[in-house]
């Protein structure tokens, strides 16, 4: 086999491994993960390579920093979520060491001093966007803004497995945003 053919074969293998490894990790989480719902906000940006999406930011992004959290550096934190009576999950505890459990998500956090209230951890969730069809995107943006002003917050539906989370849907008043934007306007 010529060297060029070997290099080409390696490139082809890499070109499959990168997307397939992503597919495998996400499919495993979707298939075996626990379904949770998290209240969030959803402004509307655009990704030049991947198209239009709703930016999904869970409501809980600031919590009391766990003891021993280092200053300045961004560190991994493990959040244990518990579902409330309204069906929405909220963070019950944060830990700096890995924690086992079906509703534990690995987040990133950075400590910020917050005066009398004590130190806070600013959290970054492992999902921040929900991709939408170009045609539906502007309508979704408008509807989310309208409902948000009326006091209804979007809810992120996720699957959690082994600390990894996959965003599967964004719900408005319990209905998928994709279905909401396809409904005829009254």
């Amino acid at each position: 086999m010529r060297p060029a053919a070997i290099v080409f074969a390696i490139a082809v293998a890499a070109q499959w491994i990168v997307p397939l490894s992503g597919i495998w990790l996400q499919e495993r989480t979707i298939a075996r993960g626990v379904a949770l719902r998290i209240e969030c906000a959803a402004p509307d940006p655009y990704d030049p390579l991947r198209g239009r999406y709703l930016a999904v930011q869970p409501a809980e992004v600031k919590l009391a920093a766990p003891a021993g959290m280092p200053d300045a550096d961004v560190v991994p934190v493990w959040a244990t979520l518990v579902a409330g009576d309204d069906g929405l999950s909220r963070i019950e505890s944060l830990a700096l060491e890995p924690v086992a459990g079906p509703t534990v998500i690995r987040l990133s956090g950075v400590k910020r001093r917050s005066g009398e209230a004590g130190d806070e951890a600013l959290l970054t969730w492992p999902f921040d966007r929900f991709y939408l069809n170009e045609r539906l995107g502007p309508d979704a943006d408008r509807i989310v803004a309208e409902r948000f002003r009326a006091g209804s917050r979007p809810v992120a539906e996720i699957r959690v497995f082994e600390g990894r989370a996959v965003l599967t849907d964004v719900l408005l008043d319990g209905v998928s945003i994709r279905e909401v934007v396809k409904e005829p306007r009254t």
């Binding site: 490139a11 070109q15 997307p19 992503g22 996400q26 390579l49 999406y53 991709y131 996959v166």
Partner: peptide, 27 residues
């Protein structure tokens, strides 16, 4: 790669995608 990222709503900036794209395309 962009579509897989889109289908699973993967986080990260588009420049992260560019990095992997460059690595697998340069050969």
């Amino acid at each position: 790669m962009a579509l897989v990222s889109q289908i699973y709503n993967l986080p990260g900036t588009w420049t992260d995608l560019v990095f992997w794209w460059c690595l697998v395309a340069v050969p």
